[in-house]
Simulated assay, not measured.
Amino acid sequence: MVENRPILNVVTHLVLILGVAIVALPIWITFVAATHEETRMLQAPLPLLPGGYFFENFTKTFFGSGLSGSESAPVWRMLLNSMFMALMIAIGKIAISLISAFAIVYFKFPFRMGFFWMIFITLMLPVEVRILPTFEVVADLGLLNSYWGLSIPLIASATATFMFRQVFLTIPDEMLESARIDGAKPLQFFWDILIPLSRTNIAALFVILFIYGWNQYLWPLLITTDTDMTTIVMSIKQMLEAAEQSPQWNIIMMTALLAMLPPVFVVVAMQKLFVKGLTETDK
């Protein structure tokens, strides 16, 4: 049992406050820079308090084309592209992984475990390793500059399949026998029993996979040549490169601030289910 000592409590709180400050300071600087005019961020010392140009910068960034001279899509369109890609990746990974785990655990067919280990071995093949053949397949299918091309190659997930397999293995066999006695078909058992019991695990995995899809940079950069399909992460990198000629840090920081909001909203909205999905062990 941990002893309740005042000195340890003070040290613990100081460490926590220091950790929060280290994480929050860059976000605060981003917010401050997004509230000042363009010329103020080029002067020393940098401001540490918000300015009065937040709504002006927001309107200019969100409804405009972002950084002038960067020839990018409107920021709202880039946010929409990233949102579609992240949602398609997260939902697609979860759906395929649930079905794969269901087949591996509850159906008896030849080489069942062999197929499972083939799926599991793909953990050693990230996108960067197979990016050229994947690009060739996507190009041959005519999926360049499309939401399907952005998401389908990233949908398969060995980690999610393994996770749901372990969840299904913890479900008592008596539930399967009861469902059979009640006349439930396999898909009824899957939809009415397995899905509700896996709700917290699905929520936890959705948060992780949504952020994974939102932060993708290399794959969208490779398959998108149309500016209307640019994602927000790609845009920030392009803005930083364009800033060497015409620095507009208020626009860049406002774009970065807008890019943070959807992942933060997903984490906050699903926080309880996320924690339960990672910690609970019994059903």
Rank of each mutant, 00 (worst) to 15 (best):
Pro47Ala: 05
Ile99Lys: 04
Phe107Gly: 04
Leu49Thr: 04
Gly114Met: 08
Met118Ile: 08
Pro110Met: 10
Phe111Val: 14
Thr35Met: 05
Phe102Ser: 02
Glu38Tyr: 12
Ser97Met: 04
Gly92Asn: 02
Phe84Asn: 10
Phe116Asp: 08
Ala90Asn: 01
Phe84Trp: 13
Ile131Gly: 00
Leu67Pro: 02
Ala34Met: 03
Ile104Lys: 06
Lys108Arg: 14
Lys108Asn: 13
Lys108Cys: 08
Gly51Ile: 09
Val137Gly: 04
Trp76Asn: 09
Phe58Gly: 01
Ala90Lys: 00
Pro50Asp: 05
Gly52Val: 01
Gly114Thr: 05
Leu46Gly: 03
Phe120Met: 13
Phe135Glu: 04
Gly64Lys: 02
Lys93Cys: 08
Phe111Cys: 11
Leu98Lys: 05
Val129Ser: 11
Gly64Leu: 01
Glu38Gly: 10
Pro133Gly: 02
Ala101Asn: 00
Thr134Tyr: 03
Tyr106Gln: 01
Gly66Met: 01
Phe54Arg: 10
Ser97Tyr: 06
Thr134Gln: 08
Tyr106Ile: 02
Pro133Phe: 00
Phe54Leu: 15
Thr59Pro: 03
Met113Trp: 06
Met124Leu: 13
Ser82Asp: 11
Phe109Gly: 13
Met78Gln: 14
Ile131Gln: 04
Ser72Gln: 10
Gly66Lys: 00
Asn81Leu: 15
Ser70His: 04
Thr59Lys: 15
Phe115Asn: 12
Asn57Ala: 12
Leu67Asp: 03
Phe54Ala: 13
Pro126Tyr: 01
Gln43Asn: 13
Met88Lys: 09
Met85Pro: 11
Val75Asp: 03
Ile104Gly: 03
Ser70Gly: 09
Ser72Ile: 05
Pro74Thr: 04
Ile91Gly: 09
Ile96Arg: 03
Phe120Ile: 14
Ile89Gly: 03
Ala90Val: 06
Ala95Cys: 10
Leu87Met: 11
Ser68His: 09
Leu123Asp: 04
Pro133Val: 00
Thr39Gly: 12
Arg112Leu: 06
Trp117Ile: 10
Gly69Ala: 04
Phe135Tyr: 14
Ala95Met: 07
Thr61Val: 00
Phe55Cys: 10
Met85Asp: 08
Gly92Asp: 03
Pro50Glu: 07
Phe115Thr: 11
Ala33Tyr: 07
Leu132His: 04
Thr122Ser: 13
His36Arg: 15
Ala33Pro: 02
Glu38Cys: 11
Phe62Cys: 06
Arg40Cys: 03
Arg130Met: 10
Glu38Phe: 10
Leu98Gln: 01
Phe111Tyr: 13
Ser65Cys: 03
Lys93Pro: 00
Thr61Tyr: 07
Met113His: 05
Ala33Cys: 01
Ala90Trp: 00
Thr122Trp: 06
Met41Glu: 01
Pro74Glu: 02
